[in-house]
């Protein structure tokens, strides 16, 4: 293996090429373990070296916790919910849905089908016009917000704050927030907690948001399009992060268009069209029944007739 290439893989943050004296064999400059990676950045936690070869696999099933589904009952109960925007745009007329605890559920549907509206109602951002929604037995309100971890599809932190200030906010408000875990994840991603959010790249901002959400031991994780607009490598990272860090007793509800990428991790599938649930089934049994992938089933269900 070329030593330069090995060095670049081990130390992606190195900016300057190595200077090679004439006639001398290539010197390998190793970044010692446990040493600060940037000048002035002295973390108080142990450095974990970046290992890109460990990130290549897409075997998500092996990452899912082995002790899943230990809790019974439904974490989400939606009964006779009605919701619209103004007088002309009706989203849900009579929505009924139960989501069991301890599952990874895919919320799939075309644009405008009601996915984001449902997620916003579960997170407490929207109130239904009629009907009831309970999360872990709590009506949607300030108490249910304490057991729901919500990741919207946009940057929702004050970008003038430093990362550690955001960690402090989550620590103060969420009882289930695991601060050491958050710092460990940031360490693994080489994100400096002392840096302002606005100085991070778009991808790193999204990673900070993901870290904050996945560092909680929530009963319900609401992820609204978590892998939209990111490259395949980042998608892989996001899905792996989700699987490795969520509380196995919790439920994840992922809303996405990119079904092929998330199909492997889904336990249950909900397909929604114009506010109606058209499919709500266990993913494996759905695949076995139809003899097709979830992606293919989705394309059939939502085929555009032109």
């Amino acid at each position: 293996m070329d030593q330069n290439q090995g060095n670049m893989q081990m130390q992606p943050q190195m900016q300057q090429p190595m200077q090679q004296p004439a006639g001398q064999p290539m010197q390998q400059e190793q970044q010692p373990m446990g040493q600060p990676m940037q000048q002035g950045f002295t973390p108080s936690y142990v450095q974990v070296p970046y290992q890109p070869e460990a990130m290549v696999t897409t075997d998500y099933a092996s990452l899912k916790p082995q002790f899943q589904n230990v809790v019974s009952g439904n974490v989400v109960e939606i009964a006779h919910v009605k919701k619209g925007y103004g007088k002309t745009k009706r989203v849900f007329e009579d929505l009924n849905l139960q989501i069991p605890a301890g599952k990874i559920v895919g919320l799939l549907g075309p644009n405008g089908s009601g996915k984001t509206t449902m997620i916003k109602m579960l997170s407490g951002l929207l109130a239904p016009e009629a009907g009831d929604i309970t999360i872990a037995g709590l009506p949607v309100g300030h108490q249910s917000k304490g057991v729901v971890a919500y990741l919207p599809e946009r940057t929702y932190f004050n970008e003038g704050l430093k990362v550690k200030e955001i960690v402090g906010i989550f620590r103060d408000f969420y009882q289930d927030f695991d601060e050491p875990k958050a710092y460990q994840m940031m360490n693994q991603l080489n994100i400096d907690p002392n840096i302002q959010l606005k100085k991070l790249s778009k991808g790193n901002k999204e990673k900070v948001q993901l870290i904050m959400v996945m560092s909680r031991h929530a009963k319900l994780y609401l992820l609204d399009e978590p892998i939209a607009g990111v490259d395949p490598a980042a998608r892989d990272f996001i899905l792996r992060t989700i699987l490795k860090n969520y509380d196995a007793n919790g439920t994840i509800l992922i809303s996405t268009h990119l079904i092929q990428d998330v199909e492997a991790i889904l336990d249950d599938v909900i397909m929604i069209r114009e506010g109606q649930i058209v499919v709500h089934q266990d993913a494996d049994s759905l695949r076995a029944q139809q003899g097709k992938s979830i992606d293919e089933i989705f394309r059939e269900v939502f085929r555009y007739v032109g």
Partner: peptide, 8 residues
């Protein structure tokens, strides 16, 4: 999105 989802 953060303000209105805080448990307060």
């Amino acid at each position: 999105y953060l303000t209105h989802t805080l448990p307060v």
